[in-house]
């Protein structure tokens, strides 16, 4: 199967979302500071391969394939890697923004972006709802001029 139509098990990205969810909640509780900087540096590193290649390239994806998937039955359906890759790109942007605000010691910016990330990761992990994917068409409509 080519990368153009690569299909993945949708349970992988869904379970994987609990990693940024847990880490960003811890960072929010800690507040901007060294701990939060370390956490968001880790998150940026985790999101980077997923944002460039796709969710199959993330550390969470590897854990899912190696340890979790063999214990589960086959998925009810597979899905394209493109929606979860877009979600990883959104996660990368939010994490990088939160990291920059934490480094610059701008509390408001840090809490806004870390809060966004928590919100989106929560919806993805708990409800299998891809916030970025839902926003995609609206963003496209808003940023492209009428033909």
């Amino acid at each position: 199967m080519t990368t153009a139509d690569r299909q993945i098990d949708p349970r992988g990205p869904r379970l994987g979302a609990f990693v940024p969810l847990t880490l960003s909640i811890v960072a929010l509780v800690l507040g901007p500071g060294l701990g939060a900087i370390v956490i968001f540096a880790i998150l940026v590193a985790l999101f980077l391969p997923g944002a460039i290649v796709g969710p199959q390239a993330t550390a969470q994806g590897w854990v899912f394939r190696t340890f979790i998937r063999p214990r589960l039955g086959p998925p009810a359906a597979t899905e394209s890697f493109r929606p979860p890759r877009f979600a990883q790109q959104v996660g990368l942007v939010f994490s990088a923004a939160a990291l920059l605000f934490a480094v610059a010691d701008v509390s408001l910016g840090f809490f806004v972006f870390a809060g966004f990330l928590t919100f989106a990761a929560f919806l993805q992990g708990v409800f299998d709802f891809c916030l970025g994917c839902e926003m995609y068409l609206l963003l496209k409509r808003a940023t492209t001029r009428a033909a």
């Binding site: 949708p10 359906a77 899905e79 394209s80 493109r82 929606p83 979860p84 877009f86 891809c130 970025g132 994917c133 995609y136 068409l137 496209k140």
Partner: peptide
């Protein structure tokens, strides 16, 4: 649909 729509194939 869009290429990024997770629920569209279903």
């Amino acid at each position: 649909s869009t290429p990024l729509c997770a629920k569209c194939p279903g």
